[in-house]
Nucleic acid binder design. Sequence first.
DNA 1: AAAATACGTCAGTCTTGTTGACATTCCAAG
DNA 2: CTTGGAATGTCAACAAGACTGACGTATTTT
Lengths: 175, 175
Amino acid sequence: MGRKKTMAEGHPPSAASGQALLYLTDEQLRQGIEAMFFAYRGFTADPDRILEGMSYGRAHHRALHFIHCAPMTTVNNLLAILGVTKQSLNRVLRTLIEDGLVESHVGRSDKRERHLTLTEAGQALERQLSDAQRARMRDAFRKAGPEAVAGFKTVLEAMMDDDMRRAYLALREGR
Amino acid sequence: MGRKKTMAEGHPPSAASGQALLYLTDEQLRQGIEAMFFAYRGFTADPDRILEGMSYGRAHHRALHFIHCAPMTTVNNLLAILGVTKQSLNRVLRTLIEDGLVESHVGRSDKRERHLTLTEAGQALERQLSDAQRARMRDAFRKAGPEAVAGFKTVLEAMMDDDMRRAYLALREGR
DNA sequence: AAAATACGTCAGTCTTGTTGACATTCCAAG
DNA sequence: CTTGGAATGTCAACAAGACTGACGTATTTT
């Protein structure tokens, strides 16, 4: 029922005269939703394969990734980026520290803070995971071409919650 | 170390003379990875909020979504699309059936198969979840514009595993 | 001195995924 | 007709990864 144009939207405010916003039909939006679902599976598939068998999982990958990108970041900082509870992060971090992949340094100005870095071994695993994930991303980007990549990033950025967009843009500035 | 152009790639086979494939640098690829991570969080946030408090979760949402898109689909079919074990799907499906959101119909030609449909109540919940998710997707699409949306879909499709791409394209044909 | 912050930890729960084993029902081939 | 295999369902056990709540400790801020 009513598969046509439920749209619930205002009219195209600008000069969208002719065929007008075909990409905003419910059908197009559903395609986008399914594309996200299937693509995210591919996105995580390679690192997941590498990690299975080790006693690590996706949560460890995420921690390694962001510690790599922002060395000497604090636990609180990581908490905000990952969007999990400190208990959940702590479990992951504890094993990574025990296994010698991550080091925790007491803050010099504020001694309550712990600053996190990757050890050599941590960098090695991060690189292995990152290589696999970047390889897939690179193939996808190459197949799609530069304009598609620009559009891809534009849409994803628009899809984020405000907090996450801030975190995302902050990371880009920090490099 | 080597943050510049590890590239490991062949040369641009075509006429990429001047600045050549800037969008394939490791830095650009990392941005893409982080964009996927943060965007996926936004993508699932609204349905998750709706479902919290009910005794349902993301797995129930996914089942409802695909049963809605392909009514009378079989359990095996759904299994392949969702990529989980039958035990895992069965737990979800059982509660949905018990609660009267999904109906299971014995196949007419092959009576081993169960064909799944949404009840009125199931359609209502699916619509509620779908509306929220489409609203976010619509906003993102509208902000980004049609060309960006096309690029978005192109990249996501290229990022899928082959199996998932087939499933994705098959769903589009079925409507 | 008191309050707030940053961190860690213990304990318990929930969702969602996994294996393995087993029963049932049914189709189709021998 | 019998039997093998496919599709389904179910029981049990388990693990990862998220959650809440409570508590403790060191440190900084007010």
